[in-house]
Design a binder for these strands. Sequence first.
DNA 1: TATTCAGTCTTTTTT
DNA 2: AGACTGAATA
Length: 699
Amino acid sequence: MSKILQDLNPQQQEAVKAVDGPVIVFAGAGTGKTRTLTSRIAYMISERKIPPKQILAITFTKKATNEMRERIFKLVGPNAGEVFISTIHAFCASVLRKFIGLIGYKQNFEIIDDEDSVRVLTEIYKERNFDRKAFSPKAAHNIISAYKNGVMPIGGIVNTLFEAYQEYLFDHNLADFDDLLLLVNKLFTLHKEVLEFYQERFRYILVDEFQDTNMTQYEIIKTLGQKYQNVFVVGDDDQSIYSFRGAVVDNMYAFMKDFDNVILVKLTQNYRSSNALLLGANTLIANNVLREKKNLFSTVKGELSDVVVTESQYHEDEVRFVVNEIAYLIRGGVDPNKIAVLYRNNVVSRNFELAFVEARIPYLIYGGFSYLKRREIKDAISYLKFLLEPNNIFHFKRIINQPSRGIGEKTVEKITERCQMYQQSIFEAIDWLHANNPSNKTSALIEFKQLIEKLQKALEQMSLVDFFDYMLEQTGYLEMLAQEDFFESNRVENLEEFKSILYRFEATYGREGLSKKEILHMGFDEILLDETLSVDDKGKGGAVLSTVHSAKGLEFDYVFVVALEEGLFPALREDSDIEEERRVAYVAFTRAKKKIYLSCATTRLIYGRIVRNPKSRFLTEYLMGRKEQEKPEILKTEKLHSDESLRDFHVSDRIYHSTFGYGLVIAVDETTIQVLFERDKSIRKIKKDHPTLRKTLEE
DNA sequence: TATTCAGTCTTTTTT
DNA sequence: AGACTGAATA
Ligand SMILES: Nc1ncnc2c1ncn2[C@@H]1O[C@H](COP(=O)(O)OP(=O)(O)OP(=O)(O)O)[C@@H](O)[C@H]1O
């Protein structure tokens, strides 16, 4: 048997070997879906001699893309580089980069992120005097995006807004994230030649996390696969957590109908977690009605104490407990990269981040604010893009008064007016204004123009990295930051960090003899769709702080699921779907390999208000599968002794044990202690190194 | 145009 | 609590 198949079970092998024709792997968490998909690609290349160039693999995140490429590389070597692995968005961007001209956009179209979209909408609001109070531009963006993703219909004023928005994007040659998908779909529908080009190019298509594809994505995958029918998708209906973005689990069933002779493979053995952990996850998800019944099993038994339940009085206690516990694990030799703190809401990450810094525990944050979305980074990128395209009004508006040059809304309006009415370029308009109606404003504009021209020349003569410094200095951007609060000082650091990205651009694309302009264009395309890009990413890593959504597909030895309270997790808004909330919990709980900590706080500060929420139903549901006497005693974190980590027990100390509850130490020897437990008034011998044994404070 | 200050609203989740 | 807005003032 080939070495690729060796590490797979018979069902997984079946999925790997069925190279031709449509296949769906429908299976629960940790059953090796991704591993099967990866092995299948390796198998196709090394056993079936399929040219790697013909393979397209769609992952859910950029992180998953990188991971998959690495894994395939390990199996088949450098050939892996030729497989087209990407997120659907990045794939669409590459299609459009080639063919978007056919549907009226210019080839150098730009991809904009949410923040840019909101900017555009804000402008439209002002132009057309829309009422901000009815709903904010931000809300409008959410609605429009939901509409574009097929989540909700729109009408009336929102439709007007939507049309104005699309018109603006088209006129400015911009595409938002949703457009990437929609435009490709349009391209494939209107231009069969393009579709055929890609059908021939990618004869084998594989899709991970299929349960979270939306209608447009599915349409794209379906049409691409129509000709050769070699479409392989893997998914888990219980892990569909992106319905807010238009994901439709029913695509899994649609797939089985739309393609002929689909091979259905089910996997039931979970290789990630022990049965002790699986029991909870299985019981929890069984509360959902809308699902395929599955029963995952593991061959590893696990310990009752692998599930730790804690309750803290205040959220500060929760943070302190989690951070102490992680510090303890790391001291005990656990690799920080194998520890994760997962939460439903980004808000709670802040407290943890601060505590990690204080405790000097290295950490990484997934999800949350992307590095590229920071103001200073976006400004810098806008400067660079404007240098390449000095007639780009979009970037002009962003940078013209950054730092302040005394140019406000009114002046910008005058310029755009002339550009539109007389078909002038921005610089021509500036010259005209200065010649015909000179003022200190127009002088400032001329100065700006000269600055840009000077920078354009300099760019040709310097390395990108040196130029970047020069640019920040010449534009006065650095000085502007220096004058802001010192509190903002890490903006400067972020900009410093950006130089390493530029350095990479130059190293990757520089030697092919490309111009600076081309290098930057290619580089920006590469990073733009990479949400995971962050400042601390390339360091040695550390414990992971992540939303549950961003942790999908990942696994960690130790997982802390925090803020498990009604209203937060599950979120209880009028439009929330409790089954989806439960799936989010299921995803969270199934990330753990060795041990899981479920944590909630009685009292929490949110929006300056003190809220007291009961502990999450998911916590209860998770434990429901256990016999009464096997349910863990809840650890009240505020009772913990501050130096409990020393595990140095003495007679008359108070302790906590996950199975037996709280108790009093009555005798100590080398390796064990004797404890009188409060709950059942019995005396037990406990090993000192029992994993959940903790010293607590006096009563 | 820039700056300041009081009042308002926020948060689910992300490519 | 903190970010963000809009109106009032310099
Ligand atoms: N046949 C196998 N033998 C040993 N280990 C396996 C096998 N299949 C999968 N695994 C391991 O199980 C873990 C989970 O695999 P994988 O991430 O592929 O599962 P998944 O189904 O994609 O999970 P999820 O749906 O939660 O993302 C990984 O650590 C993987 O290496």
